[in-house]
Design a protein around this nucleic acid. Sequence first.
DNA 1: TAATTCGCCCATGTCT
DNA 2: AGACATGGGCGAA
Length: 875
Amino acid sequence: MARQLTLGDFSALKLEHRQEQGREKEEEQPQKESVEVRRAKPRVELRQAQEGRRYFLLAVDYDGKAGKAVCKLYDPENQELAVHYDNTGHKSYFLVDLEPEQVRKNPKIVKHESFERIETVIKVDPYTGRKIKLTKIVVKDPLAVRTLRELVPRAYEAHIKYFNNYIYDFNLIPGMPYTISKGRLVPLNPQVDVKEVTEAFNDSDELTREMAVDWAPLFESEIPSVKRVALDIEVYTPMMGRVPDPIKAEFPIISVALAGTDGLKKVLVLTREGFSHGKNMGEVEVESFDSERELLRRLFEIISNYPLVLTFNGDDFDVPYLYYRSLKLGLMPEDVPFDLGSRDTKFLHGFHVDLYRFFFNKAVRNYAFEGRYSEYNLDTVAQALLGISKVKLDDSIGAIDTAKLIEYNFRDSEITLNLTTFQGELVWKLIVLFSRISKLGIEELTRTEISAWVKNLYYWEHRKRGWLIPLKEEITERTSKLKTSAVIKGKGYKGAMVIDPPVGVFFDVTVLDFASLYPSIIRNWNLSYETVDVKECKKLDEVKDEEGNVLHTVCKDRPGITAVITGLLRDFRVKIYKKKAKQKGIDEERRTLYDVVQRGMKVFINATYGVFGAETFPLYAPAVAESVTALGRFVITSTVKKAEEMGLKVLYGDTDSLFIYKPRSEVLKKLVDWVKEAFGLDLEVDKSYRYIAFSGLKKNYFGVLENDKVDIKGMLAKKRNTPEFLKEAFKEARDLMAKVRTPEEMEKAKQDLTVKVKEVYAKLRNKEYNLDELAFRVMLAKDPNSYEKNTPQHVKAARLLREFNVQVLPRDVISFVKVKGREGVKPVQLAKLPEVDVEKYYDSVKSTFEQLLKSLGVSWEKIESTTSIESFFSR
DNA sequence: TAATTCGCCCATGTCT
DNA sequence: AGACATGGGCGAA
């Protein structure tokens, strides 16, 4: 956005300076500046969508030059992008609760250069269901809304981005098939088996049943495979461990790798003195360039044939580096097919998806990928999802030979592409599905967190029903009174309940859990921002917690929008798609699609409760969130009580689960039936443990399932930052424990375990572990210098690294070892084995293994007392 | 531009 | 010096 370069002025420092200036100006006077900048650059001409062709809508944008919304469509047959400019005369607007005359009297509004007209509109008040009259202020340029909304007491729907507003107004669904008919964009919905849907929803209310039929095509419609190319650049760096600054772009781009879904495997390399010439390597085609500028030109030429460019961290590095480096080498801005925003970068021939940002999304990580990766770099994500690693380098990029450089560079682009193609394009399909559910275009979708997705979905549904989107203050005015206090200081309200577990080993334990407890509560109790603690209501219900305290009221006059949407997704998932994903007799591809669909739904379902308790969420309604957790506690407490009355022994429970000791299955069934009857909730048998070992700590246990698989929850050995030598040792312990089938065999395991721990002690004493195995790996949440209240160990280590000119950034994982001396820590890169503080490591061994040994009744003293003797002999 | 609370461990900082 | 509170990181649900 903020680009105001005079031609020929490409000095790196000046660039940086001007960029900052540009940003400031943009904030002060957004409209003028942005329009000028946009006009300064000729846009890439894209093909116009043709009458009658079949397309997939992937995003809607605003074209400042044309002053129109533009729908970006993918043509699967020609594998290219097409655009459809708005031809309905749709304009940007916002709403006010003033009479039209009052607005007309305000010259600052009606005399504004962008003012277009005033209309009267009828909207539905979400709180009462009654129709209300509002005044619509229509403007020529979407940016004018920012100015005009400040001139009225209450401006409704004035914070919605124009292109999203356009999507809502025409009920568009990104990700879905469309065609052009009589010059207009028209949906092409597939045939859907309505019977299946109506059956699944036959006991829902009418509104939900209608919506279910509306929504079914989102999940059944074909997901197009879009032609795409993954891009990765390598920049010469004089020092290892240093990432070049894209704004300065002072070092040459020595290699660029491309991997495409059309089979493209290509690396463009710069010939350098002292390095061999790049040769084709296997399937990888290599093109060598003497001029970096020609290399870049060639790159831009190749990628212009693709509607979608993929990168991993391209927003932050590859794209801005390409951009500034190009200018530095004398290319013109219009030669570079990218646009830079403040955080995002755009590909002008189509779309740019930065996969780093998609995988960084917490909801995606936790619910779609079950938390399988816990660091966000390409290597970690690829290892977790693909089982492939980056090529290992033992020298800096600038020093390795050309063949290695090509191999390394290409692997990165290949991995990036594969992240979207593995398991039948799982990730790509997820992205499209998320787009359909959230109604966000793919670029915005992949760059925003879950609250933006949920917000957009809710706004779209409001508009579809003609509901006015309320102001945040109007919601908090009703739903911000909280009745509980959290267990943890600083939190807003009381959360879930955790039953104190016993210490010891228990054979034959069955775990019951409530299927989607919170979403089901939201649906069954009709919870929503507009139903909880409202002023006017005929049919009121109470929200009681586990102690019988009435915390809130719920209005049952009309179905709450949150209850409807959450219930809808939940039922689609549980009643249709979870079953379909396991169904035999349908083809593999169809089945994986169903699995994608149910996983995608899970993301929205599980995030809904949380966003209503998040202050930054525009529909923030903490009383709703508080009601959900209170009802959760109420339900689980009642169920425990009932279970005990039935003679079941409840060992443990957390939020929505019950661990039951030696249950009789008929009794379990009776309990399940009772829960269904009492609350309308589904309590299910989740799994059975051959035995489970409780350490006595909450959220901390070790269980062996009937199929020999091991479940380890919350234990130190499982934490990402625990040193590798401990994780390895614990794995061996785990394997010992997995073999135990009877209480008698447990005795033997205890002995073996004790020996294992002693071995670890001895190896530590003899310094048989290397520094990497001993390293604690802790993530920096922010810049090392911005830790003010405390200096944690990983920050100390990070600061030491900085002193040695190693670049350290937020979200980097710092590897450090504990050493003797005042500071007590050193980064692995700077430490030596002899200075390691063995005593400190003994403590770590103790706390790691104690969590298991405690449950077995083995005291640490016993191990320590024998350890010294043992090691005496081993010496 | 950011989903929540509960719970554990370790180190650091502060008070007595 | 030792008790106690707080900061920070990571995991469970």
